[in-house]
Design a protein around this nucleic acid. Structure first.
Length: 626
DNA sequence: GCTATAGTTGGTGTG
DNA sequence: CCACACCAACTATAG
């Protein structure tokens, strides 16, 4: 029998160490092995991928390619520029592989894509081998162990993991690789769907990425940012398995840090070096195996003895959360990424809600502007000109470097949603999707749901202050000074609240606090705060209280057909009823909670109807009712 | 079925 | 500097 000819399809596993899928390919003892990467229009045009994450991906691809070449001079990472659904059927004919091997992807689109590829392979008589490898445990196994339900708490994940058994031990990197086979691409290229282009704002230059399947020189070279029409990246963070392994070694050497790590005690204000490991982008691209990390940290912790931290605060705890979000996504599929149709996501009448395809129920990437003010707030949040220096510094760091500390993410996410702007968490998640170099769909969605108190977390009365939270970590405001040079000379007394600075102090610091930061910002100025935070905090909190009492979830018919409006009284009526007078000494709910301003004033509204009516129906405290 | 408690990481004020 | 109570109050889980 002829020896196997294997296509190894790299995707989010850009590494050689501890790759169960690559090991499975090599276990076939193939005659030839093609290590390939395919471009996917879904990633290039239909996902939000900022220039910094592209750079990180490039780093990972280049490093992997070099590592492959070290094992076999004839081989490298061969990049093919065409969507996998159309490319593979042609490759199967042209290259005549016997096997296609890849790491399992449990993302919603990944499953859809891989199902199509698997079908095409079967039709072509090509055997498909899929191995899990992105997470500690196979996310589908975790779901099974959890009774087919999404894991919505860390204890649920831990229980399911315990049932599933120990995390797999890491597999060493291969010591050699087979030669690649011939790679004819004498077939027509199916052009990508480029419109709409979610990343159009980056493509200032000409986009030539998809011109030829084998790249501009016909050598399957790794892409450059120029070919994509992208400007240079601004992030200082570099990718690749080589530096990931070095970073891991360095971490492990510091036994005290590794064994006693407590996430809530790491500072979101610390930079160069940051207070956490910054390994997340390597996990995302698979440049570092999360199981290798797990076992090496485990070794340090178990030999450390007394004083070691434990989950959820510990380093191990951090990757457990990652598995929890992956398993939640694995169970819920695409509806995990949005409120509508999602049975585990609370419905809140946020501002700027997503538009949906009426046929599928899924969001389109566009959103409704229910009111002008929150749209301005959202833009000011996104571009770091809210007038709250702590928020603005973090957002500017995020945009330029593609990474901010986890607690910094908490702070800005709370501010945009339940703790300030009352803007839909899906808007914030989209910005993070675009800008984060470590953007992991499951974790990003899960964490936004957490912070917005729509899933995973419920204590909406715990609200991050854009002033005191930063001050707790960074009295002098060094992070602010680093990212907002306009405020560099402002005294520590005013650095978190420059609007309180008297004019003489402004003069001395060389900054004027004026304007909205968006329209024609003057040099030497910093914007005024876009609202009174404590007032907004009170409004948001009472609106959250109301929405919790109504108790709708994303899959409720009332959410999907718009009749949820009848459950939320019009703002004027609410004030007259005096139901949710703020307990914070501020105005009562003044209608800033979402599109409910559009709510009809139907008089026959059943006041006792304010409870869940969907599949999730359960008794609720009805404190809100009179 | 009930109650008590804990839950990745809040803010403020007091001692 | 820290510890702690209180704020106002949700829900899953353990017992």
């Amino acid at each position: 029998m002829a020896k196997p000819r294997v296509i190894y399809w790299f995707r989010t596993d850009l590494r050689l160490h501890d790759s169960p899928a690559l090991q499975a390919a090599l276990d076939l003892e193939p005659e030839v092995l093609w290590p390939i990467f395919t471009w996917d229009p879904h990633y290039v045009y239909k996902s939000r991928v900022g220039v910094n994450r592209w750079q990180f991906l490039l780093d990972c691809q280049n490093d992997l390619s070099q590592s492959i070449t070290k094992l076999n001079k004839k081989s490298k990472l061969f990049v093919l520029r065409e969507g996998p659904q159309t490319l593979f059927p042609k490759l199967f004919k042209a290259w005549k592989p016997t096997h296609l091997v890849f790491e399992k992807d449990t993302d919603a689109y990944g499953r859809f894509r891989d199902e199509a590829i698997t079908k095409a392979a079967k039709a072509a008589g090509v055997q498909v081998i899929i191995q899990p490898g992105r997470t500690l445990w196979d996310s589908d196994d975790i779901v099974k162990q959890h009774g087919g339900k999404p894991t919505m708490s860390i204890t649920q994940l831990q229980a399911a993991g315990k049932k599933q058994g120990p995390v797999a031990k890491p597999i060493p990197a291969p010591e050699s690789l087979p030669d690649p086979g011939d790679m004819p691409v004498d077939f027509e290229q199916d052009p990508p769907e480029t419109k709409p282009d979610f990343n159009a704002n980056y493509r200032s230059e000409k986009d030539t990425g998809y011109k030829d399947i084998a790249g501009p020189h016909g050598d399957f070279a790794i892409e450059t940012l120029e070919e994509l029409g992208f400007p240079p990246a601004t992030t200082p963070h570099r990718g690749g398995e080589t530096i990931a392994l070095q970073a891991l070694d360095k971490l492990i050497k510091n036994a005290d840090y590794t064994a006693t790590f407590q996430k809530p005690k790491t500072s979101p204000a610390q930079f160069s070096p940051q207070s956490t490991t910054l390994l997340s982008p390597f996990f995302h691209f698979g440049a570092l195996s999360v199981r290798l990390f797990y076992w090496r940290v485990h070794q340090v912790v178990s030999s450390y003895g007394k004083g070691a931290s434990s989950p959820p605060e510990s380093l191990i705890g951090q990757v457990l959360f990652r598995d929890m979000y992956f398993a939640a996504q694995a169970a819920l599929g695409q509806s995990f990424s949005q409120t509508a149709t999602n049975p585990c996501c609370r419905f809140i009448p946020w501002h700027l809600p997503s538009k949906r395809d009426p046929k599928t129920g899924f969001t389109t990437g566009e959103y409704h502007i229910d009111k002008e003010e929150p749209e301005v707030w959202f833009q000011r949040w996104k571009y770091g000109v809210t007038g709250f220096p702590w928020i603005d510094a973090l957002m500017r760091q995020l945009k330029e470097e593609g990474w901010i500390h986890h607690l910094g993410r908490h702070s800005v996410a709370c501010f945009l949603t339940r703790g300030g702007c009352y803007v839909d968490w899906e808007r914030g998640a989209e910005v993070f999707e675009e800008w984060l170099i470590d953007h992991e769909p499951a974790c990003n969605i899960g964490n936004w749901q957490w912070l917005a108190c729509v899933a995973f977390f419920t204590q909406y009365y715990r609200c991050y202050s854009p002033v005191s939270f930063g001050q707790k970590w960074d009295k002098n405001g060094d992070l602010i000074r680093r990212w907002i040079p306009e405020l560099k000379k402002v005294s520590a007394k005013y650095i978190y609240e420059p609007w309180k600075m008297p004019l003489p102090d402004q003069k001395e610091a060389g900054v004027r606090v004026t304007g909205d930061g968006l329209s024609d910002p003057q040099k030497g100025t910093y914007p005024k705060p876009m609202f009174d935070f404590s007032e907004r905090r009170g409004i948001c909190m009472s609106a959250m209280k109301k929405a919790y009492a109504v108790g709708l979830y994303g899959n409720d018919e009332k959410v999907l057909d718009g009749s949820w409006r009848s459950l939320f009284p019009s703002p004027d009526e609410a004030e007259v009823m005096g139901e949710y007078e703020s307990d914070f000494g501020e105005n009562a709910d003044n209608g800033d909670d979402g599109s409910q301003e559009e709510a009809n004033n139907e008089t026959s509204r059943n006041k006792r109807g304010a409870k869940s009516n969907g599949a999730e129906s359960k008794p609720k405290k009805q404190k809100i009712e009179l």
